[in-house]
Design a protein around this nucleic acid. Structure first.
Length: 675
DNA sequence: CTATTAGATGTTTTT
DNA sequence: CATCTAATAG
């Protein structure tokens, strides 16, 4: 039963809010999750059926954590409908595929797949040439996604966010229209389409009414990071009922690049006129010296709801601001501090290293390995982007959606002697002509000159036929695990022939095959894998090789909502905080400031901020080109005064700021001795 | 003409 | 590491 004894008055008011729209503005560390869980418990205690509660979160991780926590006290919470916007959208769209005119076996494209389709169109539209530089595929995907998520005309997005692409406005319009058509032809939806289709369902007179009536209560976490499309969905879901709770902190809005806008949370009272507003400012996470720094950074931003975090915990030490020479010294200092803390009893797991971008920890990772400090990295390079994993997923998708040309294109290019041109011609034969796909799955691909494989070099035909046979067999196999095994076996020779490090890669595929066996069907397996990709490289191999304790490395974005005893924030120099890419407009800079704020407020008692003053332009490169950085512009004198400042070794910054060293490479040779 | 290779070059953040 | 370019091999 509901027990509010652990809550403060504001939290209790939010948890037991009787009905109608509720906005909880919760500063960092003020017990947002506790409050949301308590509200769930309270609702269940009031007799609301768990399956009539919808809980939308930002990450799957957050959904799991919250449901687990609530289920600990109210077991029924397990049956709450919960997940990310995209995951819930996916379920709704699959369930109503027919009404949307979709094949229920539709393929789901992740961001990388979407970029690949766009790349295909890019060359089909003749933008390949080296005439004038046309946006690259990832840029295309960004522009498209941003436009759709913001629900604003392309021209406006180009002017505001991609001014250097504005000259291509007409070509881009044409390309993006073609993209929509191509997805239809492929039987594919991208991540944005999930939201678009869900919104369409919610707005439909008949289906929408049913979707809306299905839930007595809708709760949304991290509402500061929703975009216009998601707001539309929430509003449509609540068009017939008014019970909606949203929780968030406009100071922690860090997903503007996905068209999220903190204005939405501030507008909530306008969208839901009789909304009740509760503000949580008592911070239970951090000590006051940590919060002083965070508050000082937040105070630089003049917009939004002013919130001043107050620590409920006594005492605490001043955070450390460390000026060091470069990333190597930074790495050494972090390792020293982490090990020292461990000597004093802090588990590695209670400490984290946070950073702006995934590769800010490159040097540190080497140092950690050298010192045998186990770690897990979140964010940064992802498992699903590995080429062989994509190959396998492509094959899995083909079993359900033979129209998926993109997957054909990918798989065929694994064959020796097959590049883009032959792959494309073969795809055409397979999909349109009288190939096994067009003919409804008859085994008609003889190795002769007439079959769909005729375009392939002779040596590639047999392996190709093997793949087709396996696909055919897989299609007749109902069990997901068995299906995956068949396809895994078919891919084996191709992977061996194509990748020098095939053993490692095949090992990954075995892990995937094993995971597929747990799933009800492969389509769901692949889709859910894309919607909930393993957050760390370790996630998949199970809990790894390491001891039971490890240091956490994470991007600030992936660290949202989490907390540690000790936090080390890397590379807080201008150009990284804010990133030079994002220092264009006032709004972008404000978002970078909030990002720093999120990083700072992850720390419970021990906070270390590092400013390497010399950094390399090409960390991976072999040259020594570097520049001298200044501390982040957010570390103003007032902010720095709140730290204990540590300066190590050489920290002399040359008087003229950035100095680019030569790309000198010094050769050593004794060849002359043997001439 | 087409596929493959080597070499140079540039990169945010994520559902 | 992926992508683009230029050069080469088929």
């Amino acid at each position: 039963m509901f027990d509010g004894s652990g809550l403060n008055p504001e939290q209790l008011a939010a948890a037991t809010h009787p009905g109608g729209p509720l906005l909880v503005l919760a500063g960092a560390g003020t017990g947002k999750t506790t409050t949301l869980c308590a509200r769930v418990e309270w609702l269940l205690g009031e007799g609301v059926a768990p399956e009539r509660i919808l809980l939308l979160t930002f990450t799957r991780r957050a959904a799991r954590e919250m449901l687990q926590r609530a289920a600990g006290r109210a077991p029924a919470a397990k049956r709450i409908v919960g997940g990310t916007f995209h995951a819930v959208a996916h379920r709704a769209v699959r369930a109503h595929a027919a009404s949307l005119g979709l094949d229920p076996g539709f393929t789901l494209l992740d961001a990388g797949d979407a970029a690949d389709v766009l790349d295909l169109l890019r060359s089909e539209h003749g933008h390949d040439g080296s005439r004038r530089r046309f946006p690259r595929k990832h840029t295309l995907a960004d522009i498209y996604s941003r436009t759709v998520n913001a629900q604003r005309p392309l021209g406006e997005i180009l002017d505001k966010r991609f001014p250097w692409c504005a000259e291509w406005a007409d070509e881009l319009s044409a390309l993006f229209r073609a993209y929509g058509a191509r997805k239809k032809a492929l039987g594919a939806l991208d991540l944005d389409d999930l939201l678009l289709h869900w919104r369409a369902l919610c707005r439909d007179e008949v289906v929408g009414a049913r979707l809306s009536d299905a839930f007595d209560h809708v709760l949304v976490d991290e509402y500061q990071d929703v975009n216009g499309l998601q707001v539309d969905i929430v509003r449509a879901l609540r068009s017939r009922r008014r019970d909606v709770t949203v929780v968030g902190d406009d100071f922690q809005a860090i997903y503007g690049f996905r068209s999220a806008d903190a204005r939405h949370i501030l507008d909530f009272p306008r969208h839901f006129p009789d909304a009740h507003v509760v503000t949580l400012e008592r911070n239970y996470r951090s000590t006051q010296p940590v919060l002083d720094v965070a508050n000082a950074v937040a105070a630089q931003d003049t917009g939004g709801f002013r919130k001043v975090l107050r620590a409920q915990r006594a005492g605490g030490e001043r955070p450390r601001l460390v000026f060091c020479r470069d990333a190597s010294e930074e790495a050494a200092l972090v390792c020293d501090a982490v090990l020292a803390a461990r000597e004093e009893g802090a588990l590695l797991r209670e400490q984290a290293v946070l950073m702006r971008t995934g590769h800010d920890s490159d040097v540190l990772e080497l140092e950690l390995a050298r010192r045998r400090i186990p770690f897990v990295k979140y964010g940064g390079l992802r498992y699903l982007e590995a080429a062989h994993v994509k190959d396998f997923l492509a094959l899995l998708r083909l079993a359900d959606n033979p129209r998926d040309e993109l997957s054909w294109f990918r798989v065929l290019q694994l064959l020796d002697g097959v590049g883009p041109a032959r792959a494309r011609r073969t795809v055409n034969r397979l999909v349109t002509g009288d190939g096994p796909v067009g003919a409804g799955g008859q085994t008609s691909w003889a190795l002769g000159d007439a079959g769909p494989l005729a375009e392939l070099p002779a040596a590639a035909r047999e392996p190709a036929a093997g793949v087709l046979t396996a696909l055919e067999a897989a299609r007749g196999e109902p069990r997901a695990g068995r299906r995956a095994e068949l396809l895994r076996a078919a891919l084996d020779p191709l992977v061996r022939a194509h990748y020098p490090d095939a053993e490692v890669r095949l090992h990954d595929l075995d892990a995937l095959t094993g995971a597929a066996a747990e799933a009800a069907d492969l389509t769901t397996f692949v889709s859910e894998l894309l919607l909930d990709p393993p957050a760390s490289t370790q996630d998949f191999a199970g809990e790894p090789l390491l001891d039971d304790d490890w240091l956490v490395l994470s991007t600030v974005h992936s660290a949202k909502g989490l907390e540690w005893q000790a936090v080390h924030l890397l590379a807080v120099y201008d150009g990284n905080f804010p990133a030079c890419m994002s220092a264009g407009s006032r709004e972008e800079i404000a978002e970078e400031r909030r990002l720093l704020y999120v990083g700072l407020t992850r720390a419970r008692r021990s906070l270390h901020v590092y400013v390497p003053t010399r950094y390399h332009h090409r960390p991976a490169g072999r040259d020594d080109a570097h520049g001298y950085g200044r501390p982040s512009r957010f570390l103003t004198d007032e902010v720095q005064a709140l730290f204990d400042v540590v300066r190590t070794g050489v920290d002399a910054v040359p008087p003229f700021g950035e100095v680019s060293a030569s790309r000198r490479r010094i050769e050593v040779s004794v060849d002359e001795l043997f001439a």
